[in-house]
């Protein structure tokens, strides 16, 4: 077990340095911080809310991540296939799952770093008022889990094709579907003709439903389980896709 963790760490380290050796990481961080700040203070109504919280920031994240996370994850496997390095990687003494987990963890860590860099907003709220920092912490946990779920889906679409644009679009569509099934303007529409239990059952599959709990400061094990299952399922599917390529 110790050996397999070592291989995962080496792969993750290489993947993480690949972000920072190309301009990708810097472009991503700047765009993320600019947009999240912009949404928080304009459309989010940070000041108009009249409350010391990060709701304005967190409410926009599922939509911002919808584009940014697939952008960060689209290259994970499609680039390996395009360059042919997948053949090098998988003929080194590692199992495919270790490579999948290693690459995923590196990108997730990168996204968590991006999230952490939004700390000036937390500082602002604390300077202006007296927010519940427990709720803010729980909000960040939810945001990190949301990023992980989107990222695992991007991993999967990235393994499907050597074309990064296709991988990106597929990931956005899949993540969007996971938002919309629980997006209230849409579920309200559905509730007009479908029975309430159906609407509720469908919305249970939405990332929003489970994300909201964290934003209210409620750490519910069911929400945690939901995000972890989405990640595990998408990464498992990635493994199946990669195995199928090799089987031909």
């Amino acid at each position: 077990m110790k050996g397999s963790w070592a291989a995962i760490r080496i792969i993750a380290k290489r993947e993480l340095s690949a972000y920072f050796e190309s301009p990708v990481a810097y472009v991503f961080l700047v765009i993320f911080l600019l947009l999240s700040g912009f949404f928080t203070f304009t459309f989010g109504g940070f000041f108009e809310r009249g409350e010391a919280s990060l709701a304005a920031f967190f409410n926009w994240l599922p939509w911002l991540f919808l584009f940014l996370v697939p952008a960060a994850g689209m290259r994970l496997w499609s680039e390996e296939r395009r360059l042919g390095t997948i053949e090098l990687l998988l003929t080194m003494p590692v199992a495919a799952w270790q490579a999948i987990v290693g690459k995923f963890l590196a990108s997730w860590l990168f996204l968590v770093v991006a999230l952490a860099l939004s700390f000036p907003i937390v500082a602002t709220v604390n300077w202006l008022g007296d927010p519940d920092n427990g709720v803010i912490a729980s909000g960040y946990v939810g945001a990190a889990l949301l990023a992980g779920a989107y990222l695992a889906i991007s991993c999967l679409t990235s393994a499907l094709t050597r074309n990064q644009v296709i991988a990106f679009i597929l990931a956005v569509v899949l993540c969007l579907a996971l938002i919309l099934v629980g997006f209230s303007p849409l579920t309200d529409l559905l509730a007009r003709w479908a029975s309430p239990w159906l609407v509720e059952a469908v919305s249970k599959f939405s990332v929003l439903t489970h994300y909201d709990g964290f934003q209210k400061g409620m750490l519910d094990s069911r929400d945690l389980l939901y995000f972890l299952s989405v990640m595990a399922y998408a990464l498992f599917a990635t493994g199946v896709v990669i195995r199928n390529h090799r089987t031909g």
Partner: peptide
């Protein structure tokens, strides 16, 4: 895999490294 050294066709590598 430990006992094999392999040069794939077209010699791929991580070009950004």
């Amino acid at each position: 895999k430990r006992s094999i050294g392999y040069l794939p066709e077209a010699a791929p590598s991580y070009t950004e490294m």
